[in-house]
Amino acid sequence: MEKESVLEAVYGLFLQEGIRGMRMRTIAGKLGITRHELCSLFPGKWELVAQCVEYGLQRLNAVLDAACASSRTPVEVLLRSAVTAYDAFGAMSWQFIEDIAYYPAAVDAVNGERRLLRKRQRSVFRQCVEEGYLFGMEYSELLEQFFWPDFKTESRHRDAALRVLFTIVRGSATERGWQETERVRRLMGLSC
């Protein structure tokens, strides 16, 4: 197996079954390779976990970039990237999130990604204000305070989180921004 294929498969295993209970031998068995083959690609579990988390974050960034590239307006970028990020982190099991705490490099990578997402959202929010879709940056602070802290939870809270997202964006929208928000909501097939 190639390293990229192993990372993809192990990342999927970690998401489903957690990290802590997995030994290199168990992982190799689930992949249908020997422990020796796995260790030739990754010297140890610490390295494997760190690279799997990086792999997952790279996938998230690729999905975010694609969502942003296909967006017509900054409002669409704002909403698509927020929903995409929420869904990506919501797909992580609690076991996976809890297990990451034992791997400092993985924690640093996830926290760094969260900071980058927030920074990216602030920048897009500012662009929405500058282009006349939204009223002011103070609403960006509301978004950070009420939407982003919840985005790391399981997707069972998705409807409530998306209602918060759309309520804040609609509440800060000009007429033009309101119309664009509704267009994007319908385009994405969201009921909030």
Rank of each mutant, 00 (worst) to 15 (best):
E4R: 12
V6I: 15
A9E: 04
A9S: 06
V10T: 12
V10K: 09
V10I: 13
G12V: 08
L13E: 06
F14A: 09
L15G: 07
Q16G: 03
Q16M: 07
E17M: 12
G18L: 01
R25I: 10
I27S: 08
A28T: 04
G29D: 15
L31Y: 01
I33N: 01
T34V: 11
E37Y: 08
F42V: 07
P43Y: 01
L48W: 02
L48Q: 03
L48P: 01
Q51N: 10
V53C: 04
V53E: 02
E54Y: 05
Q58T: 08
L60W: 12
V63I: 03
L64Q: 02
S71A: 15
V75D: 08
S81C: 10
V83C: 00
V83K: 01
V83W: 03
Y86I: 01
W94N: 07
I97R: 09
E98A: 12
P104D: 14
E113V: 05
R118H: 03
K119T: 04
Q121K: 00
R122S: 06
S123Q: 08
S123W: 04
R126N: 01
E130C: 00
E138G: 02
E138I: 05
E138P: 00
Q145H: 12
F146P: 10
W148P: 00
P149L: 01
D150Y: 05
R156T: 12
L162H: 15
L165M: 11
F166A: 12
T167E: 14
G171D: 14
S172V: 14
E175K: 08
E175G: 09
T181I: 08
E182M: 12
R183D: 04
R183E: 04
R185L: 11
R185Y: 10
L187H: 15
M188I: 05
G189H: 15
L190P: 13
C192V: 15
